[in-house]
Design a protein around this nucleic acid. Sequence first.
DNA 1: CGGCTTTGACCCGCGC
DNA 2: GCGCGGGTCAAAGCCG
Length: 233
Amino acid sequence: MLEAKVQHMKEQNRTLRMMVEIMSKKCQKLQLHVQEINNAESEFSTAQKASQIFVKIPPNDNSLIVKDGYEWKKYGQKKTTKDNPSPRAYYKCALAPTCPVKKKVQRSIQDKSIVVATYEGKHNHGFPFRDLFKPSSATPEASIMDNDLPMTNISNDINIDLCLCNRVPTDVTDKQHKDGGSNIKVLECVSSLLKDPNFIKPLAEAVVLSINTQSKQVGLNLSLGLPQPHLSK
DNA sequence: CGGCTTTGACCCGCGC
DNA sequence: GCGCGGGTCAAAGCCG
Ligand SMILES: [Zn+2]
């Protein structure tokens, strides 16, 4: 009877894994599509330059590092801005030497548990799916399957990228408040899901499994607005 | 030893 | 011209 439960769990796990595989493939497709759209629009108008995303990072670390799948080389930091006393960091895309993309990262003034990252420019190279899976062999998937590993391990290692959900085309200034509204909705929706360990744990496991089996490598660390259990706004 | 972060200096556009 | 403020440079430092 216990074994039956285990079997059932494995079944569920497998279906989840398949779903995740499908989703990741769709995600790749979407990434490509976004690139195409960006390229197409860049041919028409150079208007779309800066986008803003909001990432929750509890203020326990001041590192101001936002992992979003790309690699960034920090080239500057301001201790203080006029309207925002928190430090602001300047990054440049380091994946291609010729890539002109820059981003600014600064903790929000209204909600200090949220970090605002402002991207400007478009990558002249593809999204580095392959490089996401760093060659650290680490835990074989069997251990995840067989062990009843605590979720803390997973959640520390895995961050899911929701940046696309928060992505905001067009210029920043005008859209600022509008962004706030939509992003709050997104955050509420996401957090309500993420509050539930019964949802997030199998998902995380399935993600790990899928990644491990797909790429035979581990170390994915996308970034994301994370479960902030009680964020009022 | 090499690459990345740190950090103050520097630059440059803008308003007065 | 001058001061201010955001953005960038690059020498020094740090770390594996
Ligand atoms: Zn790039």
